[in-house]
Design a protein around this nucleic acid. Structure first.
Lengths: 203, 203
DNA sequence: AAATTGAATAATTTAACTTTTTGTTCAAAT
DNA sequence: ATTTGAACAAAAAGTTAAATTATTCAATTT
């Protein structure tokens, strides 16, 4: 007799694997139920409907991803190192997580450049906090140039999304990896506090 | 009696306007022919088929865009100024070109982050040359840091594409404009030759 | 010859309808 | 508290005919 709350990890795993293999449309509620050794009727005791099952599953996977990056970042103290670790560990994580990668290929809209239509906006906001805190710390320690932290966070997160799209949605694996290193260098160069001069007039 | 070659400017204009208003599917070959005061049979004297009519029309519009930016850039001599003018004039041009903007909204795939499936790759390659030449000049004059110009060009062009998608495909107009200024500053800061130290190890 | 027409034909799209599959609910059972 | 299975609703897939649109081309005009 397992407690309701104890069932969710297995539920999310079964669900993620099926959605990864067949996509949202071709995965039936019964497929998921059978994989969990239950009937589809019973699955509705755990989730409201198919759509929410899907979204909760993805949200769970994205949250685990974010937590993993957070842990890696917290091991460093220097903001420059934190920035680098954030970028590298985020990419390394998904590199190892095949089901999540597959789900993204089947449903490219999971990664969107449009915050307005981001179904996982809440989770992504939480991920952005990691970046934002690094920038804040860097600015406070005068290691990064004085900036509008929220805007720079939004921009860099967009660039990160762009890479995820290029690498995993479009599967330009090899070329994207190289570009990622180039981008990391260029952006870190930009963040570092070489000068206090403003380079572009405020529009 | 107009010469065949003289008809193309009017042809591309009529075609662009119709595709802008109705999109590829809802624009008929007859619509275009009527707008040019000819029959659809005769339109086939000028273009191979509907798909090519569409692609030639977009290519023509994108090429004009590129030429406009090139002209603006050529008026400056300093690579930093060139970089800024390139960014600003590119955005200003499309801001004024309503039909091109509309066509992009109707067919978001015109701007893609995937070079492999870019139907207008050739035209975009030509546009990248402008950026590449600016970077080359900046590096040669030691104003920009020593870099792999091809890779940095590819990265910055991706960022540019990302902005076009965010601003015109996703219509996050207001917020994207601000981010563009932020990005311009951050990237120029990164390009400038403050140090010769490598910030990230080569992967 | 170069450009254009209009009619014939091929290809594609749309609409209406049927059948099948899948999602969701819920009273009854464990 | 959790699970079942049957009933029902909703959505997807398949079928077909009609209508629209793309394309070709022999004949005509400029």
């Amino acid at each position: 007799m397992t407690l309701k709350t104890e069932k969710y990890p297995a539920l999310y795993q079964a669900s993620l694997e099926l959605f990864a293999d067949f996509g949202y449309r071709k995965t039936t509620v019964e497929d998921v139920a059978v994989k969990l050794d239950m009937t589809k009727g019973n699955l509705y005791f755990y989730v409201k409907n198919k759509k929410q099952l899907y979204e909760q599953t993805i949200t769970h996977a994205l949250t685990q991803w974010k937590d993993h990056v957070k842990k890696a970042v917290d091991k460093k103290s220097d903001p420059v190192e934190k920035f680098r670790v954030m970028a590298v560990s985020a990419l390394a994580y998904i590199e190892k997580n095949a089901p999540l990668r597959q789900v993204i290929i089947k449903d490219p809209q999971i990664f969107t450049l449009s915050p307005r239509e981001d179904r996982f906006a809440e989770t992504n906001q939480a991920a952005m906090v990691i970046l934002k805190d690094i920038l804040k710390q860097g600015v406070a320690q005068k290691k990064f140039y004085p900036m509008d932290v929220d805007q720079v966070t939004a921009y860099l997160f967009s660039v990160y999304m762009m890479f995820l799209i290029k690498t995993y949605v479009n599967a330009d694996q090899a070329s994207s990896k190289k570009l990622f290193a180039i981008a990391l260098e260029l952006n870190l160069r930009g963040l570092l506090n070489h000068t206090t001069d403003r380079l572009t007039p405020i529009v």
